[in-house]
Design a protein around this nucleic acid. Structure first.
Lengths: 242, 242
DNA sequence: GATGATTTAATGGTCCTACATTAATCAAAC
DNA sequence: GTTTGATTAATGTAGGACCATTAAATCATC
């Protein structure tokens, strides 16, 4: 008896998804470009439109494409982002599988190391961005969202600087998660939670190229912030009174 | 002119997805139970079946449910898993945004700390599991997959032991990614890459409750393994000859 | 009565058509 | 020249029909 291979029973939509994903990952469809229209894909893959739509919807929800309606609309390939990770973390939090202290513990272990790495890769361009971000923290803002963005900017820059895409991805997702939690928990006394100038020391140390100092400053900053966040969270959950 | 609020136009499938997801995350549909059938959902949501299917397909592809056909089939809610994270990392790797050294660097920074944490939470039950896993590494195996599973078991146990679900989630995803890369790169001389008994020291230290020793042993183990993995990867990519 | 084959029914999987919604473009009206 | 409306190409939605799969019920056989 020849050893028959097991029949692979893949769904049509899965194969379509796999092929589309592969094309994107291989760079055959570059960021900004768009996939063929649903009707075209229907013809190319020789499947029904529903099958194509299921695949595209998954691509959209996992952050690979964004949809646009109307003529000259379609599924546009997005640049690489961390949506999938970010959503994964957020879902874990929403499922009550993740507590603030746990999140804090992880950030406290990762980000000082990233600050250290970043300080060893300082360039004039990064220096400029850091200085701008520091200055922007103190500038007046129009909206709450804008303020939050400015307070997280330094963290994002350091993540980008650390030279490890995986660290960057994880940290981006964690920062974003923190951001979302803050949004949900307490959009009010934000000054107590995270005032301007909190990142000055960190940025300075990184600019100086002093890894130890940068790591230490980051640790100090996070310890303060995390403590505040925990407090705010407890209040929010009604387990603690003022 | 009164200031009209912009109309929020969400897609039907997104709302369906959101409601289903919420029900799962809130535990209203527990793990093992199944969602109503597609036809029932079309009635409850008052939308077409295609819309429902798009939502369910996303739930499936993000690891929230698994589909089964036939009577008493349907969309069964899965226990919490790390598929979403894992897939995110894998996609980053497949997009060539992630190198082996980067992966190694992150594991080398995270896992010793996790081993340290684990050593402070040793219990008789965990001790038993660790001892069994250690012993199993040396037992004969039937398949390549089984071998791989046994070699990663200690890491999974430690991740579970560390008491931080976020650490556990990240580490699980990283271990799984490493596993997938090994699978793709070099299913041959696995002994050189990772022989049995590599985790003995780590497990012993954890069982003894010696955090420093555990962290150190883990670091040593990972440094060796990571070096081998990099070497194997280079060979695979043809950039280096024996 | 046990066992195996057959039928049945429930459910997901696929296809098709028609229409709705959206938004870019162009033409006509003012 | 600005507005308005028609055109058009794309996604979004609805609904129905049918196929494929499979667990469970039914029936025939021993």
């Amino acid at each position: 008896m020849p050893d028959f291979r097991p029949i692979k029973q893949t769904r049509a939509s899965e194969e379509v998804l796999a092929q589309l994903k592969e094309a994107i990952l291989r760079g055959q469809v570059k960021a900004g470009e768009k996939l063929p229209s649903e009707r075209e894909l229907t013809e190319q893959f020789q499947v029904s439109r529903g099958v194509v739509r299921e695949a595209i919807r998954v691509l959209e929800m996992t952050g690979f494409v964004t949809m646009k309606q109307g003529p000259s609309g379609g599924a546009f390939v997005t640049g690489l982002n961390f949506d999938q990770l970010s959503n994964g973390f957020l879902d874990m939090y929403l499922a009550n599988k993740l507590t603030i202290p746990e999140l804090n513990q992880v950030r406290l272990h990762i980000e000082p190391e990233m600050a250290r790495l970043a300080s060893q890769r300082i360039t004039p361009a990064f220096r400029l961005r850091l200085e701008k971000a520091i200055a922007a923290e103190r500038a007046p803002v129009d909206s709450y969202d804008e303020r939050m963005e400015r307070m997280t900017e330094v963290h994002f820059i350091l993540a980008e600087m650390c030279g490890n895409y995986l660290f960057e991805a994880i940290d981006n997702a964690l920062i974003k998660l923190t951001h979302q939690i803050v949004d949900a928990v307490k959009p009010e006394d934000h000054d107590a939670l995270h005032g301007a100038g909190e990142h000055d020391e960190i940025a300075q140390a990184v600019i100086e190229g002093d890894g130890e100092k940068a790591a230490k400053a980051m640790r100090a900053h996070l310890e303060k912030f995390c403590q505040e966040l925990s407090r705010v969270d407890l209040i929010y959950k009604g387990l603690m009174k003022y």
